[in-house]
Structures are given as structure tokens and as C-alpha cells.
Design a protein around this nucleic acid. Structure first.
Lengths: 250, 250
DNA sequence: TGTATGCGTTGTGTATACAATAGCGGAGGA
DNA sequence: TCCTCCGCTATTGTATACACAACGCATACA
């Protein structure tokens, strides 16, 4: 009897965590809404213990908030929370770039980053960029940022950046998607690519301050564009994290 | 029958979390050592479910590391991990100070910070500083940093700073204690107090860049002093987090 | 008619039983 | 003597049962 389909390839805890995260980011669970464990058990197929573990993890991740009287609710974010989160990640990435530059990086370690850069250049040559190419861009951009973070060789910093990127709107992919809502999207992507180029150059020449400054500017650009995108609310359905933005308040 | 003493005033999960953290920071559990759930159940008095919840939380906090094959082990930190963590927090606090300065803070909001500053000044007037006064200093310093963080008015940033301070050696109290191991401790504390004074002044005058710079310098001072303290390993028993430093490796 | 109290239901916090897996030790063969 | 394989044990992952607390609704009294 396959009444309860048990997938043994992945732990129930992880399965529940992924399922719940999907529900939150897809907007199936509204911000501020209390999450019922019982309901979560039904929708995820796991039992209460792994569901509870998943809820604790999602709380630490920042997607949920503990209710004092017990249980969890979906966290709601203001527009400022989102822009602050992006700037926060930019600051952290700036520190990572500085560490990479100051501590030195061999040409061999820089190679994957340069390949990534070249691949993005190739994509941006299309005018206007196709939907498929844009999707590839999102992936490549996330890869670029991940590689750059790694170059810092600082586990505590890498860990913190990962945490900061857990909130979808603060992840590299998140704000790229937000930018895509703007008419001048392609131009923005090209400016961003310039930043990528500069940070590699700065790291190669061991210019820590310059490497840091450009990554922070990179994030500030993203913040400005997110603000613009939120003004003219077109195509914002591309941004899944929008489900988390406070609607009534603020 | 009080065979199992159940304290209903605080949840079993929190109780277990605190007990386990104590065990880790006191060195009762060595870095790299696997934590047995069964053993944790015995030492904490809670049952397996809350113990597991506590373990997940401590992992997210950064004190534990998940073992791929299952279970958790006490995380081990290198000296560089520690100095990176301090610099990381300094960077975050720098951003908080910048936010406070740029967004504006009323005189009334700045008042508690100034009181804190004055109280520390009072303490440092003693030469040499007494043990009691030093203990008060640790508390006041933590309070100063917490108040400053709050002034940013940015929940995501505050949250991230809290996380960064979860590792005891990266908390304000942690590195103050490390500094105390140095003969020139008092002089260092006075320099730190100068930083505190400057950051308040910068926030008052809405000089974001200056506010940020001084907080980063504040952290860099702490890193330098921690390095010195670790060189001449005297009085380092004052630093409880030392239990987490890798011994053999690195 | 409004408010307060009590009872019922729902849901979380905790405990424990069961299942599955990984690691270790012993035994047998090369 | 060493290597390999099989089985056992210990420990984790999962499921579920139980207890208590909180919220809501209804009813009764002012």
C-alpha cells in the first residue's frame, strides 16, 4: 500500500523544508499567516517531527518568525527591509572581495571566475536579450557571486553571506529578476557586468579597497533599480520573493 | 515522584539549548567531538525531541556542525576564523553606524548611548582598573554596541549582527576579554573608548562614512589585540571561547 | 444588551516507541 | 598474517501518542 509515499532518497526533514519554502515563496502561505503544523504535515507528507525541524530551520533562515505563544508565522518584509538586505549582502561581498585581494589569489583560482565573466559577456551580446538567455544569465550571475565569495577563503564570511542570501530577494538571482522588470534592463545588466570586470581586475592587482568599493557599488545599483522596479509595478511577477512583501502596512 | 525534575517555567527546548551551549563553551565538549543525543538527554534532563531541536538551533548558531552521516559535532575554529569573525562583525556594525548617521537619529535616541559612554569613562578613570570595574566594563561595552546596532533601525541588519555575535569570541564581550590578557589592556580600552566617542559624534553630525570607518577601525584594533593576546598566552583562561579553538591542526 | 465565565476544541510541546543505517568487531579464508 | 565479508550493536531519523495551554464560543447573569 502506497498510502503514504515515502521517498527514501532524501530525508523527510529536507523534503519538508523544501516543500514549505516553496509554499512560502510561491505565496501559497501569506505573510503574517500562522503556519499550522498539522496542515504542514498534510501538504508535505512528512510527519510532525521532521516538519518541526524544518520549521526551526526556516525560522533561522529568516523566512519564518516564532510566535511568542507558540508556533510560527510567515515573516513579512517592508520595502526597506528588502533594500537593506541587498545592501547588507553587498557589504559582505565587498569584504569577501577585499579579503580575496589582500590575501592573494592565484591565476588558476581566478580562472573559473573569468570563464563565468566571458560567458555572461557572450549572453549580453544579444540585443534584445532572449528569455532563455536571461534565464542563463541568472544562473551564471549567481555562480559568479558564489565563486567570488569562495575566493575570500574565509569560512565564517562565506557562511554569513550564504545566510544573507537565504532571503530570496537578497540573493543575486533575486535582484537580477527585480531589475528585469525595468525597460532599461539590458543596460543595467551591462553596468553590472562592468562591476564584475573591475572586481576581478582589482583582485588580480591586489587592490583590496577598490575590490570592496566596486562590490558595494554593485549592490547599491541593485537597490536603486529595485526601488525603480517597485515604482512601476510591471513584470514584478518575475520576482517570486514579492510574496513576502508586506501589503497593507508600511 | 520527582524522579525527573520538570521545570515548567522555561521550555525544555530552551533549557536544553542553554545547557548544551554551556557544555560547549566551558570546554566540557571538545571541538571536533561528536555529540551523542543520548548523552545530551542525560546531561540536560530534557527528552530527545527538545534536545534535537536545541541541536538544530545550535547548528544554525554556528556552534555545531552537522555530520553528513548523521548527528552533530562541536565546531572547531582556527585563529583566522576568529579574527575574520571579529572583522565581519565590525563591518556589519560599521554599516549600522552608517545607517544611523544617514537616516538621522534624534538627540533623545542618542541619550542612552551617551550615558553608556559616560559610565565607561567613569570606570576607566581608575588606574589600574579593578576586577569588578572590568566586569562592569564588559557589560557596559556590550550594551553600547547593542544600542548602536539598534540605531540603524534596520531589522535585517540587527538580526545579522546578532547572528555574528552569537559566536562568543566575536561578541563585544568576547574580544574585550581577549584584550584583557594584554599588559597594555587599559590603554587599549581607552583607545576603544575614543572610537565610541567618535562614532557618536559622527552620527550626530550625520557623517555616515566617518561613522562607518571608525567602527571598522574599532574591530581591526580588536583583531590586532587578539593576535597579540594569543601570542603571549597569559590569562587567556578569561576567554571562555578559547575552548573552541582548534588545538592540533592549523 | 453587554460582559464575564466556563467548557470545549484545536494545536503545540514533550515523551517515547519503532525503524533503518552506519560503524565496528570477529571470524574465516587466502 | 592480512584482508574481506557478514552480522551485531549503537545511534540517529521518523512516527505517533499524550498532556497541557490557549483561543473561541456559548450561555448565564447583571
Amino acid at each position: 500500500m502506497a498510502e503514504r509515499e515515502v521517498d527514501r532518497s532524501v530525508s523527510q526533514t529536507v523534503k519538508a523544508q523544501l516543500a514549505l519554502r516553496d509554499q512560502i515563496l510561491s505565496g501559497a502561505l501569506r505573510p503574517g499567516e500562522r503556519i499550522s503544523e498539522l496542515q504542514a504535515v498534510e501538504t508535505t507528507g512528512a510527519s510532525r517531527t521532521p516538519v518541526r525541524m524544518a520549521l526551526v530551520r526556516l525560522e533561522e533562515e529568516g523566512l519564518l518568525e516564532a510566535i511568542p505563544s507558540g508556533g510560527f508565522m510567515v515573516k513579512a518584509f517592508s520595502e526597506r527591509d528588502i533594500s537593506d538586505s541587498i545592501e547588507l549582502r553587498g557589504t559582505l561581498e565587498g569584504l569577501a572581495a577585499r579579503f580575496a585581494a589582500e590575501r592573494g589569489v592565484s591565476a588558476r583560482e581566478l580562472e573559473p571566475l573569468k570563464e563565468c565573466l566571458a560567458a555572461i559577456d557572450e549572453l549580453l551580446r544579444q540585443v534584445p536579450i532572449s528569455v532563455d538567455a536571461f534565464s542563463s544569465y541568472v544562473t551564471l550571475n549567481a555562480r559568479f557571486h558564489a565563486l567570488l565569495t569562495e575566493l575570500s577563503r574565509s569560512p565564517p564570511l562565506i557562511r554569513q553571506i550564504d545566510r544573507a542570501s537565504a532571503l530570496p530577494f537578497a540573493s543575486p538571482s533575486g535582484f537580477v529578476m527585480a531589475q528585469s522588470a525595468l525597460p532599461e534592463a539590458q543596460q543595467i545588466l551591462i553596468i553590472g557586468q562592468d562591476h564584475h570586470r573591475v572586481v576581478i581586475d582589482a583582485i588580480e592587482n591586489r587592490e583590496g579597497a577598490r575590490a570592496e568599493a566596486v562590490m558595494r557599488e554593485h549592490a547599491r545599483l541593485a537597490v536603486r533599480n529595485l526601488r525603480l522596479a517597485l515604482r512601476n509595478r510591471t513584470h514584478l511577477d518575475l520576482l517570486p520573493a514579492l510574496a513576502l512583501i508586506k501589503t497593507a502596512t508600511d
